Amino acid sequence: MTNSDLIHDETAGIERLLEIMRRLRDPDGGCPWDIEQNFASIAPYTIEEAYEVADAIEREAWDELQGELGDLLFQSVFHAQMAEEAGHFSFQDVVATMSNKMVSRHPHVFGAESREKSAEQQVADWEAIKATERAAKSETGTLDGVAVGLPALLRAYKLQKRAARVGFDWPSTTDVLEKIAEESAELVEARETLTQTEVEEEFGDLMFVMANLGRHLGVEPESALRAANAKFTKRFQGVEKKLSTLGKTPSDSDLAEMDTLWDQVKIEERINPKTP
């Protein structure tokens, strides 16, 4: 089979996608846009595609998930192709590394260890293996390896989780709530007396503690905020629909009217929670 045949063979699987990517990056006859890209320029698209996967799952849009997962896979293929061109590694190296990692981190599945463990013990074992891997890469600090490029709220959660493993944590949820009250008061004071930069610092402190509260409550803050965004979007769209029946848009309304309609939308949600 020629490379051209491979590109048009719908049954060829991952090899077809890899060949398509090679052709797109080919200096002779490839796509000018794809040829010009580099790791830094593609990284934002990779992050965006990951969020679109999460969005499809959040909405239970299973008919869209296949395409979104394909878009995310293509990002991995794109990065691997650029890496191979630069002599760093190939897509097959990526696959081998991931496979080796999963086998290493699951000795209770692929090795001699017993599967008779609680979920909590398996998590502890997983973290111990990861710590060993970090040490092998000279990442000996408690916070080493927490990716700087993560969304800030998620990174705050992971930093606090890592620090808690070595005992740097509030003993109870009550202590966190007291800290939130303290940070809130400081933010109010900052608003009245400090510069905008100092206000932003106090606001950041408050958000950081809120992320820690989520950890103490067993709530992943990034996921909770995505759900809150979805809920707000759905309710505000409900307000817009009600205004539309009155021949209005939000610009034609006022806060009092929209707030009343908002309450109506919330009541309707309780009566019929499955309404799309």
Rank of each mutant, 00 (worst) to 15 (best):
R59K: 15
P27A: 06
C31W: 12
N38C: 09
D9Y: 08
L18P: 04
Q37T: 14
S41Y: 05
G29P: 11
L24Y: 03
E10Y: 13
I14Y: 01
R59G: 05
E49M: 07
Q81L: 03
A40H: 08
A43F: 12
V77W: 02
Q92L: 15
D34K: 03
T46P: 06
A61F: 03
G13Q: 07
F91T: 00
C31I: 10
E60Q: 15
E84P: 05
I35D: 00
E36D: 05
F78N: 08
V94R: 09
D55L: 09
I47Y: 09
G70W: 04
C31L: 14
N38A: 04
Q75M: 15
L69V: 11
E58L: 05
L72R: 11
E48M: 07
L72D: 01
I57M: 14
P27C: 01
V53S: 04
L24N: 01
G67D: 13
Y51M: 13
G87E: 14
V77R: 04
S90L: 07
W33A: 09
R23N: 09
H79N: 07
L18C: 10
S76R: 05
N38G: 10
H88T: 04
L69Q: 13
D26V: 06
R22G: 12
I20Q: 15
M21N: 07
D26H: 13
V77L: 13
I14L: 15
Q37V: 12
D71T: 10
F89V: 00
I35P: 00
A43T: 15
Y51G: 14
I42N: 09
L65C: 11
L73R: 04
T46I: 09
E52R: 03
R23P: 01
R25L: 13
E68Y: 06
R59T: 03
D34R: 04
L73S: 03
A56V: 06
Q37E: 14
T11C: 03
E58T: 03
W62K: 02
A12F: 00
Y45G: 10
A12Q: 09
A43E: 13
I14S: 01
C31E: 14
R22K: 15
L73F: 08
L65F: 03
D28I: 00
G67A: 14
L69Y: 10
Q66G: 14
D63S: 15
I42F: 08
D26I: 06
R16T: 00
A43P: 00
I47E: 10
E60K: 14
F78R: 10
E49W: 04
G30H: 02
G70I: 11
D9G: 05
Y45T: 12
I35A: 11
L18H: 10
A54M: 13
E84F: 01
A61L: 06
R59Y: 04
